[in-house]
């Protein structure tokens, strides 16, 4: 692989360019050399100055290319269909009272319980694909089998994406630049098309529309959340999305969840917002570190949800009127 010329390498595996860029190696003008020949052109002084180790870099390049090939092939190889949680124990050492909990793609499950009850631990068990090797002793199965270790160890293919109301954009980029960068890091074949798709979806969620040239750091709370959700739904490789509350201002939460499940994600949502919690068909009640109940949302609760959604629509309409400078009627 690394015996080819740089030109041929870049032609066959264009993502190799990012390896050279991130390692601050300017290969322009050296395309006809192999990577080893290119690295050999540095003088010992230059190597020391730039803190470069040619042997290590060559080995790293081979490994990087292998990881990227794996990454590109993963989507076809292992689509996630089910996530299964096998019971462990709570903080008192009591066994959790369920047999096995299987979640399917496009399913929403809510998680309720007081602060400190163990919601984070549950989310961490899933994130780490626990195999009885965490304090709860829970085991996670993917497609009914113990997960491939890559879910735990690959930096590019994480099992879960996370969304919480504390998250903010910190990059100094416009929405367009931001989405472009994310699409490139995901090796998306058509960054322009996916950028459009995300923008359309995000603007359907946001109370106020925003443009591609808006800096991500000047988006309002609702707009940021809308962009984060649309981006996670459409561009993140992770098949499971963990949500830790979504704020209720300036975003259509129902559509947000619909967008996530439309992308075949499994959505786990820690929330005490009745609108969100009841949208899930099941909810896990956590207490003292363990899952103590698995409730199926009842028809009565679904009816209640309808009432709450009407109330919410009234509040949302009033908010929209205020934003437009109108009097509330």
């Amino acid at each position: 692989m690394t015996k080819q010329t740089l030109a041929r390498l870049l032609e066959q595996q264009p993502y190799a360019a990012d390896f050279f860029k991130q390692n601050k190696l300017d290969i322009s003008g050296f395309e006809q050399l192999t990577p080893a020949e290119y690295l050999a052109h540095f003088s010992p002084e230059e190597l020391e100055d730039r803190a470069l180790e040619p042997e290590r870099l060559l080995a790293d390049l081979a490994l990087y290319l292998e990881q990227m090939r794996d990454f590109l092939g993963l989507d076809e190889q292992q689509p996630l269909r089910t996530l299964t949680i096998l019971p462990g124990r709570d903080k008192a050492g009591q066994a959790e009272d369920f047999e096995r909990l299987t979640l399917h793609t496009s399913e929403i499950v809510s998680i309720v319980g007081p602060t400190g009850s163990g919601k984070s631990r549950l989310l961490a068990d899933i994130e780490w694909a626990a195999q009885g090797d965490t304090p709860t002793g829970r085991r996670i199965l993917i497609n009914d089998a113990p997960p491939d270790p890559q879910w735990r160890y690959s930096s590019r293919h994480k099992l879960v994406a996370q969304l919480s109301q504390n998250m903010n954009f910190v990059m100094d980029l416009t929405v367009q630049g931001f989405l472009q960068l994310h699409a490139e890091s995901r090796l998306h074949p058509d960054p322009a098309a996916v950028t459009r798709e995300i923008m359309t979806a995000a603007n359907r969620l946001a109370g106020e529309a925003f443009a591609l040239d808006t800096p991500v750091t000047s988006l309002s709370g609702g707009q940021s959340r809308a962009l984060m959700i649309a981006d996670t739904a459409i561009l993140s490789a992770s098949p499971i999305v963990l949500i830790d509350e979504i704020e209720n201002a300036g975003i259509d939460r129902k559509r947000a969840l619909e967008l996530l499940v439309a992308q075949d994600k499994i959505v786990l949502m820690a929330t005490h917002d009745p609108l969100l919690a009841l949208m899930a068909n099941r909810r896990l009640v956590i207490n003292n570190g363990g899952i103590c109940q698995v409730l199926t949302t009842s028809p009565a609760e679904k009816a209640k949800l309808g009432q709450l959604q009407q109330l919410d629509a009234v509040i949302a309409a009033a908010r929209q009127q205020l934003r437009r400078g109108q009097r509330l009627s």
Binding site: D18, N23, R156, S164, N166, N168, F169, M171, S236
Partner: peptide, 18 residues
């Protein structure tokens, strides 16, 4: 916990490149 999913993914990808 305080940056977006996209920023986490891009950051981790870049760490992985070096």
């Amino acid at each position: 916990d305080i940056v977006s999913q996209a920023e986490r993914e891009v950051f981790a990808a870049r760490v992985s490149s070096v």
